[in-house]
Amino acid sequence: MLELRNIKKIFNQNTVNETTVFDNFNLSVKKGDFVSVIGSNGSGKTTMLNIICGSLPIEGGEIIIGDRNLTGQKEYKRYKNIGRVYQNPSLGTCPSMTLLENMSLADNKGKIYGLGRGTDKKRINYYKQLLSRLNLGLEDKLYVKVGLLSGGQRQAVALLMSTMTPIDFLILDEHTAALDPKTAEVIMQLTRELVIEKKITAIMVTHNLKYAVEYGNRLIMMCDGKAIIDKSGKEKEEISVDDILDTFNKISIEKGN
């Protein structure tokens, strides 16, 4: 499904600040996988996501999703089959537009944004139905500007919006990091439901080890641009938060932090 081949990423190339994040990094994700990625700051998690989406250029290697080779393709074109939810809840929605307008925008992804009516009135009930499953009372706030909603509500909407149209691949970039524990739990459950129901392949970067262990069928721990833990299936089920913490500590000691 997703294939990263021999990825090479160097920041500030040919300057004193040159930093190599990835040197021959390889990753292969099967269709339907839900991969949790953990790792300390600077280990290359977010860089990896940015490389997949094209927010960052690469110095070498190939990115393949399904049968599409995305290497060198413009960022916006890659998002045709990719959905992404960001750490910052305000990045997934338009604050000055109403909830209904936001939903309508997302609903039209992949189609032409022409001179037809922006909101299809026949779809309003469908949007309400989608929102009501969040149990946040959002189905009654269709005409409220999204900027007035709370971070958790916005993130829930962003998640719905990013999975509204058929996508192959969902990228979750620490999408619960800015939320309170209870809301984070709600968002995580919604994520799981959506991923299973829509049979989406997903990569989730998180700092929450509990979520990494609890959710998904594969766990990757990154360090210095390499996957130092990569467990899937049964092995993944057996791994515990303590195991991961041990590894984290070992790395810290080795690095002298």
Binding site: Y76, K80, L91, T93, N108
Partner: peptide, 12 residues
Amino acid sequence: DNPTLVTSLSKD
């Protein structure tokens, strides 16, 4: 309002 969203919607 939010250029990131427009990119996510696969529009330039």
